[in-house]
Design a protein around this nucleic acid. Sequence first.
DNA 1: CATTGATATATCAATCTGATATATCGTGTC
DNA 2: GACACGATATATCAGATTGATATATCAATG
Lengths: 225, 225
Amino acid sequence: MLDLAILGLLHEQELHGYEIRRRLRDELGLFANISFGSLYPALSRLEASGAVAVAESTGPATVAVPMPSTGSISGDRAGLRARRAGTPRGTKRSRKVYRLTDQGRDLFEQLLDAEEPVGTDDARSFGLRLAFARHLAPQARLSLLERRRGQLTRRLATDRVRAAGQSLDVYTRSLAEHSTEATQHDIAWLDRLIESERQKQAVLRSETGGPRSGKSMTAVKGTNP
Amino acid sequence: MLDLAILGLLHEQELHGYEIRRRLRDELGLFANISFGSLYPALSRLEASGAVAVAESTGPATVAVPMPSTGSISGDRAGLRARRAGTPRGTKRSRKVYRLTDQGRDLFEQLLDAEEPVGTDDARSFGLRLAFARHLAPQARLSLLERRRGQLTRRLATDRVRAAGQSLDVYTRSLAEHSTEATQHDIAWLDRLIESERQKQAVLRSETGGPRSGKSMTAVKGTNP
DNA sequence: CATTGATATATCAATCTGATATATCGTGTC
DNA sequence: GACACGATATATCAGATTGATATATCAATG
């Protein structure tokens, strides 16, 4: 799951580990505080599998990559030299900037498009996929939304059973009721997204395949900046 | 965190591993599908540390099986077997029923009352504590709710910054907006809980400490069954 | 110029997940 | 009767994640 997040961010531009963490936290809002003990090994794995590659560690074009062996502790010397040599931007300690390879691009699409196993009911997994939904084909995007809706509907059923339980104290009951409401709210949101997607696809079809009778009952709320 | 959940469930009655998992899933709704690879080692740890003890798995005649009348849909299979056959002990794989020790009771209170470190913004941790909030002193209960409210308020601020970001596509923006709404909804819920708690404590004070001017502006919504 | 805080990478033990193995028992089904 | 199947029940493993800690650079503060 973290792999997908990393590949997705690198899809846009080259990034180093620390910056990936920052974006995950500040921009995506997923993985509120992903651990470095998780991030760096993930990057190493992806590098070993050929999905990402180290792209020129921030230096002026003169400095070569320190050494093939990952004894990067001695690499900061090169970073220092690079900075003194007049690098315009604030080059910190020698960064390892990663870029996506063609193989990584394939892996990204494969991971993004894959249906998570049925038992999975993870808001994170969906949120991550939605954040990269623009890279999905319209049909796959719709499938993602509908799959998630199914998950939530199933959860709503069990939530209601739980909230109807008799042996609950005030707090547990309130928790169950609130959970039910939150799930309903999520479903309503998804319904808006799904409707919006259907509208978009109807427009696309009518543009490419000739005018068809599109029953547009609701205004499309989402606006593209 | 799982330790707290286990201890909390055992606080009520003796349980075996499989049943603990079922209750976590079906009754509490937390740990949607806690892994056995997590649960059983946790039970072993707790047993090793003396917080729980094995209470006669398939005891000969005196079977300490939970009452089948109290909503225990399944849970008397072994007991049935034991009663019917008289069970020559040892040959069959049987349940390991755990009970809370005095030491475990102390640990439970300690874990439940402990403030989680400031960086923690975990809905699960709060949900778990709320589910066992009836074991907390009124003041500690109020602290828990207010601490959580603080967490959510802080999150709301970052959520809003994120939603105001300019470089977001439709999907990421929708995600950010929905996240903001969900957090607001959570805060409103907490406010109702907090108000309800304050009412309760005011009533308690007026009952024990003589009649005081209780300005009851809002009706207490939560009702105890 | 010493100290703090942000940037940046790395590693470790403890723990969690998802998968798999093993075994018993009740139920349906042919 | 046999025989598959699903639920109950415990256990273990590889791989991934967390939270902590270590190391180092750099900017700002006093």
